[in-house]
Design a protein around this nucleic acid. Structure first.
Length: 695
RNA sequence: GGUCCGGUAGCUCAGUUGGUUAGAGCAGGGGACUCAUAAUCCCUUGGUCGGGGGUUCGAGUCCCUCCCGGACUACCA
């Protein structure tokens, strides 16, 4: 049988953010799969790269007063170190800002042109004259054209939920300069994706490259049912200057959109690896003998399952054999949050904890489905300590030292079928790994560990060693225990590469192939036992969380640093500038303008869930004296109705009433925060009474 | 609102094509052991498998319906 050839990728981390535990889900899932394939004898090349292009990079570099290249170089070192220290076995970690990438972009682009997929169209976008750039949706905020809610994002309103283009905003404002942007036209280049409709229908639904859930999602949201397909929208792939990226050769002054070159970064990284190893690029990207596997998060599904196969197909490259989509990580049941300390950077984890723990925990939680999964910190501690230390490593720990001087028996002794049974389970475990159902693989492996420990218990090596007549019996018992341990180490090698290595050293026989689990090891010397894994200390987990809470970070959004140097020396709190940066100050208003807004203290006298509403609570506010207001407030994710009843809040009492889907809303409850579960309703200090105006 | 995925012991989940008294790990209770990283082993408590209908000799497993949770998406089917 010829050797299986695999090219595997993880999605590209963006240069503007540090690597965090959410991204590590993907890196670890991919790495486990890659290591498994290599252990099975496949020729498996694993590449990734930094995603570097786009407006955000440009702006951040500008803010930090340096070139994009300097920024990229610095982040590249940090990202690579994070991944390496988590034992991610990348063959090459490249960059989309590389010569190889530029050249491949050009090659693919010219083919897409040749096939007649590109068209040009005028696009009206908001332009920030002060910064001199066109503004992506997220860099514009303003008043919702439908409901009048102020300071809404550029693409949709968080109050009424309607969607619009940034140009439709009333009173739009650039989040970069705070100035009023002006609409400007520019020519953009589009790829007519609809030309691929039939191809994509077949590929997504029939090729087996996608999980069923993904195939359904694409049909439901983009392709439409086969009998009445929906046209795919043209894909805008160019951006006018200035834009940090590659200039399009046949359209000077225009640059490829970051999502055009990002997946090409996979190829560019492969090219770099090929050049270093004397390999031929086409053997990996233009060969029926090579399977291409992409691992991605669910947020970027359609880039990888519609645009990307379209591009590949047009340019004559191999289509992905599989696109493995995984869900998101929550920590203790919640989305990662900086204020709660659950936005944990990879480096913060590494400063306190062993990567093996997280690799095992993720492995035990991941399946081949797209479900989100939770990193419960308590479960993390008990699972790692019970499974890895108590069951698995303990097997070696309690038997190796008895045979340190005599080594393993020359012939594998009778063990009641334990080794054979575990060997026979190997295929099932391999299937689970192959299909990315590592949770199942871990369960199967731990079930084997559960059978191995009673064996040691029953045969009591600690008693045998007291009797010099029974030395060979002792050796046999330990030979069995250590072989059962070694089987587990082989099965766990994709997840715990360091332990596999240590096992090889302990038993003087390196673990190099999955099938080693089928044949018992005999007659080798046994080295002095050394601890393979420490138990997780709960305090280390706590420290990591504490540290992440404090470390509000100066990275992330790219537009975060303009408040630097403004802090006075006498401010011991040293609050972060993130919140202010996320939402810059509104333009000045005079006192009369301020007086237009009538803020009043009000008491919540009733609060209830609204059937069918995702974000809203229905509140009844009392202004005193029998004056009531019905208000729908978007605070459902942050507050339970019961905890609000009786509270004093501040409401906008003279806001034009608005007819909402669930009834009339006669005001607003004042709150701060970015939204979602992070909403903080304001309360007056004690002594305030309903009806009082806020001046 | 639409689409999809779930709802099995306190917690995390297994339950293959419907087939005997529904399982594991953790946690809880009791005991044993002391080789081992306060590890291990044995025994044990605990579930009208979300509710209700139906198909069947037989349903956690199939069908219908409702309730709840989540993800995606949105007023456009």
């Amino acid at each position: 049988m010829s050797q299986r050839r695999l090219l595997v990728t993880s999605a590209l981390p963006y240069v503007n953010a540090d690597i965090h535990l959410g991204y590590m889900v993907e890196a670890i899932q991919t790495d486990i799969w890659v290591r498994f394939q290599r252990l099975r004898g496949a020729l498996c090349v694993y590449v990734c790269a930094d995603d570097t292009h786009g407006t955000a990079t440009m702006i951040r570099a500008r803010r930090e007063g340096r070139t994009e290249e300097e920024l990229i170089a610095e982040v590249h070192v940090a990202h690579e170190a994070d991944l390496r220290d988590f034992d991610i076995s990348l063959d090459n970690f490249g960059s989309t800002h590389s010569a190889e990438c530029r050249s491949l972009c050009g090659e693919i682009w010219s083919r897409i042109r040749e096939v007649g997929l590109v068209k040009s169209d005028r696009v009206r976008q908001l332009y920030d004259a002060e910064e001199g750039i066109f503004l992506a949706d997220r860099f514009v905020r303003g008043t919702c054209p439908k409901c009048g809610a102020q300071d809404q994002p550029g693409d949709n309103c968080s109050k009424c939920g309607c969607t619009y283009s940034p140009a439709e905003l009333v009173d739009p404002r650039s989040t970069l300069s705070g100035t009023v942007p002006e609409p400007r036209d520019a020519d953009h280049l589009f790829i007519e994706l609809e030309q691929f409709h039939e191809f994509l229908e077949n590929w997504t639904q029939g090729s087996g490259a996608l999980q069923d859930e993904t195939a359904n999602y694409l049909r439901g949201h983009f392709l439409g049912p086969p009998d009445q397909p929906e046209p795919l929208r043209d894909w805008d792939v160019s951006r006018p200057a200035p834009y940090f990226g590659f200039e399009i050769p046949d359209a000077p002054g225009n640059y490829w959109y970051v999502w055009f070159d990002a997946p090409i970064g996979y190829m560019a990284s492969t090219q770099q690896w090929c050049d270093k190893h004397g390999e031929n690029f086409d053997d990996w990207w233009r060969s029926d003998d090579c399977e291409i596997h992409h691992f991605i998060g669910k947020d970027i599904t359609y880039f990888h399952t519609l645009f990307w196969p379209g591009m590949l197909s047009a340019a004559g490259f191999t289509l992905p054999a599989k696109v493995h989509v995984h869900g998101f990580l929550t920590i203790d049941g919640e989305k990662m949050s900086k204020s709660k300390g659950t936005y944990v950077k990879a480096r913060a984890y590494l400063n306190h904890l062993n990567p093996a723990y997280l690799r095992y925990y993720y492995a035990s939680k991941l399946s081949n489905r797209i479900d989100d999964f939770d990193l419960s910190l308590n479960e993390f501690v008990t699972k790692v300590n019970t499974d890895l230390v108590g069951k698995f490593v303990n097997l070696a720990s309690r038997s190796a030292k008895f045979v340190a001087e005599i080594g393993l028996s020359a012939v594998y002794p009778e063990d009641g079928g334990l080794f054979a049974a575990a060997a026979a389970t190997g295929d099932e475990i391999a299937e689970a790994y192959e299909s990315c159902d590592t949770g199942r693989a871990m369960r199967l492996i731990m079930a084997l560990a559960d059978r191995a420990n009673p064996f040691v218990e029953e045969n009591k090596p600690w008693e045998l060693r007291k009797d010099s007549e029974r030395l060979s019996e002792l050796q046999d018992v330990c030979t069995i225990a250590l072989n059962l341990f070694r089987q587990l180490a082989i099965y766990l090698a994709p997840v715990l590469p360091r332990v596999a290595e240590q096992t090889g050293e302990l038993l003087n026989s390196p673990i190099t192939h999955w099938d080693q689990a089928k044949v018992p090891l005999t007659g080798t010397p046994v080295a002095k036992f050394r601890h393979m894994l420490k138990r997780v200390e709960e305090k280390d987990v706590r420290t990591m969380i504490e540290e992440s809470r404090e470390d509000t970070g100066d990275q992330g959004r790219g537009e975060g640093d303009d408040c630097r140097g403004e802090t006075g020396d006498a401010d011991p709190w040293n609050d972060s500038g993130d919140a202010l940066a996320a939402e810059p100050l509104a333009p000045e208003c005079n006192f009369d303008e301020f007086l237009k807004v009538d803020l009043r203290v009000a008491r919540v006298v009733a609060a209830e869930h609204v059937s069918g509403a995702r974000k809203l609570l229905k509140l009844r506010l009392s202004l005193g004296g029998g004056q009531y207001r019905q208000v729908f407030a978007g605070i459902k994710a942050a507050y339970e109705p019961d905890e609000l009843v009786g509270r004093l809040v501040v409401c906008v009492a003279n806001l034009t009433p608005r007819q909402m889907k669930f009834g009339l809303s006669e005001g607003m409850v004042v709150a701060s925060g970015p939204g979602g579960s992070e909403v903080f309703v304001l309360s007056p200090d004690e002594g305030a009474v309903p009806g009082q105006r806020v001046h």
